[in-house]
């Protein structure tokens, strides 16, 4: 397949396929999880759990006292990676147009050179985090195949996007096609891996805050 043909497939049927698998997987995971249910807590609450739950969804992003000192790379690396990934995804004008074509609305973008720098920082951070998975005792102990798969499908869009932007690799049209395909791969893989956390973390944090909050503890 030539570059233009690959690009057209990626923008057309490829996207349809990836979005379908992604949404199918998401719904399966959400609904199968939701139906497990939860027993009502009959103890007398000190406070209604909803407020504390919602609060923790946001406040858990602030590390616990001492946490940063114990494991700086995990926290800082995690923050820089997530920030960089989200900003390059959401504030690069071509991406905004892609999202607008799906959502029906867009928003202002950042100058491409800023996105470029941020993209490079994000790539470097991801590599550092991978190295840490090999070298740090706790990370090495916990890491499984799922972690490597998730890392790879997250890394490829960043790498291919950066390469395409800088005219690295093969011709631009093919690199752009590969970039879009790598995003489609990411979409397909998300529901089958720990990448689900991008959705479920909100519920997990809510439960955490709610369970503690109804006892009057702010976490």
């Amino acid at each position: 397949m030539s570059g233009p043909e690959l690009l057209l497939w990626a923008r057309g049927p490829g996207l349809q396929f990836a979005v379908a698998i992604f949404l199918f997987g998401l719904l399966v995971r959400f609904v199968e999880l939701w139906l497990l249910g939860r027993k009502t807590d009959l103890s007398e609450a000190r406070a209604h759990p909803m407020g504390p739950g919602l609060r923790t969804v946001l406040s858990r992003s602030v590390p616990m006292p001492g946490a940063l000192k114990h494991a700086p790379l995990v926290f800082l690396g995690g923050y820089i990676f997530h920030f960089g990934f989200l900003v390059t995804l959401l504030f690069y004008v071509p991406h905004i147009h892609f999202l607008r074509s799906i959502l029906g609305f867009g928003w202002p973008g950042l100058p491409p050179f800023l996105i470029d720098v941020l993209g490079l920082v994000t790539i470097a951070t991801l590599i550092a985090l991978l190295v840490q998975r090999f070298t740090d005792p706790v990370r090495r102990f916990l890491t499984r195949t799922d972690d490597y798969v998730a890392w790879t499908v997250t890394f490829l869009p960043l790498l291919s996007g950066y390469a395409a932007f800088h005219r690295l690799g093969t011709d631009y049209t093919t690199m752009l096609a590969l970039h879009i395909l790598s995003v489609e791969l990411l979409l397909i893989v998300i529901p089958f891996t720990k990448l689900m956390h991008m959705f479920t973390f909100m519920l997990a944090r809510w439960y955490n805050g709610a369970i503690a909050g109804r006892k009057g503890v702010r976490v």
Partner: peptide, 8 residues
């Protein structure tokens, strides 16, 4: 439509 949009 911008180059980065979907076609289908």
């Amino acid at each position: 439509q911008a180059l980065s949009t979907k076609t289908l």
